[in-house]
Structures are given as structure tokens and as C-alpha cells.
Computed example of a mutant assay.
Amino acid sequence: MLKAFEFCLPTAAKAVPVGPDWIHEIKYDGYRLRVERQGRRVWLFTRNGHDWTSRFPWIVEAALKNREPQFVIDGEAVVLGVDGVSDFNALHSRKCDAEVQLYAFDVVAIGGEDLRPLPLSLRKANLARLLRGRPDGMFVAPFEAAGIGPDLFHAACRMGLEGLVSKRRDRRYSGGRSKDWIKVKNRTHPAMSRVM
């Protein structure tokens, strides 16, 4: 559907950016995933280009129930615990594949139109419209604007979450590593030891 698609990847940083141009999302601990729907067909692709369509049936079902027959969503495949926190061990075990949902944080195409040149704020508005009244299996990543970033990061750490991803609200979707997307990780989260 999208020729030469490349995921936008956040740049690691030690501090959350502040200022009116940034929005902040909780970083869920899962697998990055691109969901493509073309009519009655849905594909799920990983960052490395693997086709995981058969792996996560709930996401596929949610995509097929959407009234829009053509779209590409960027997000994170996650298993949520009863506390609403993503459980990477449950995800990685493959025992919960039927429970995996999509934490959707960007939409890069709708109805055959490439939305990557639009600023993030407009892509977020399009994503909210696309998933409005959505069936279970996909949910829109909530975000907070501007100066709340550092406080949100400390709250996320206290809750045992992985960290934050901060994004420039006025920038296009660019493939590859981007300084318009900044990730700050909770140094005490188990994901840190997996990275090491």
C-alpha cells in the first residue's frame, strides 16, 4: 500500500523535552507494528519487515471491523494486565497471542492518501476519527501536551511504566531515526536489562 515505508524511530535521550511544540505519550512495552488494511485484507508488519498477520487475530479483526476500508496505522502490539500496564513477558511468551491489542499512536495513510507529509497534530486528529467508536483490539494512545512532560515521566516511573516518547506536534512522519521523536526510558524498568 505504501511504497518504501520506513518506520519513524525515536532518538534516545536522558531528559524529556519541554515547550509548546511537544506532545508526550506513555511508552508501552511491546512490539512495534504497522497495520495495513486494503479492502478485506489486513497485514501486520514488524519493524524488521516480518509478516505477523496470523499471530495477532484480535488486531486483524479490529482492523476489518473499521468502516474505513483502506488505512495504515503505526503502533505497538501489547498485552495489557488487569492494571492496564503492558506485560512484555506475556506478549513474548506467545501464550497470549489472542489477547494482543494495538496501542495506536499514528496513522500514515487513509483511503489511499499518504498522510506522512501532514504535521503530527493533524495525523493524531485523523487517527482519533478513524478509531472513533472502535471495536476492542485497537485503542488510541492518549497523549499530553507541552509542559507536563517531565511530571508525566516521573509519574510513569512511579507506576512502573517503561517511560515516555515525546514528539514534535508540527512535524511530518519521517522514516528512520528522528530527533522529532524523543524517547526517555525509566532506568529501573525491566526493558532496560533486555536492551543491555
Score class of each variant (00 low, 15 high):
M1Y: 08
L2T: 07
F5P: 01
E6D: 11
A13W: 01
A15I: 02
A15L: 03
V16S: 03
P20G: 13
K27C: 02
D29S: 02
R34K: 14
G39H: 01
R40W: 06
R41N: 10
R47E: 08
G49A: 03
H50T: 09
R55S: 15
R55V: 15
K65W: 05
P69N: 11
P69A: 08
Q70A: 12
F71T: 00
V72D: 02
I73R: 05
D74N: 14
E76Y: 04
E76P: 02
G81V: 00
D83H: 07
D83Q: 09
D87Q: 13
F88K: 09
A90T: 04
A90D: 10
L91K: 01
S93D: 10
D97P: 04
A98R: 12
V100L: 15
V100W: 14
Q101A: 15
L102A: 12
A104P: 01
V107T: 06
G111R: 04
L122P: 03
R123W: 00
R123N: 05
R123P: 00
L130C: 06
L130E: 06
F139V: 10
F139L: 15
F139P: 09
P142H: 06
A145L: 13
G149F: 02
P150I: 05
L152W: 08
F153G: 08
F153M: 11
F153I: 02
H154E: 14
A155P: 01
A156E: 07
M159N: 10
G163V: 01
V165N: 12
V165W: 03
Y173M: 11
S174F: 02
G175W: 05
G176S: 13
R177F: 03
K179H: 13
I182W: 01
V184E: 00
K185D: 06
T188W: 06
H189R: 08
H189V: 07
M196H: 13
M196I: 07
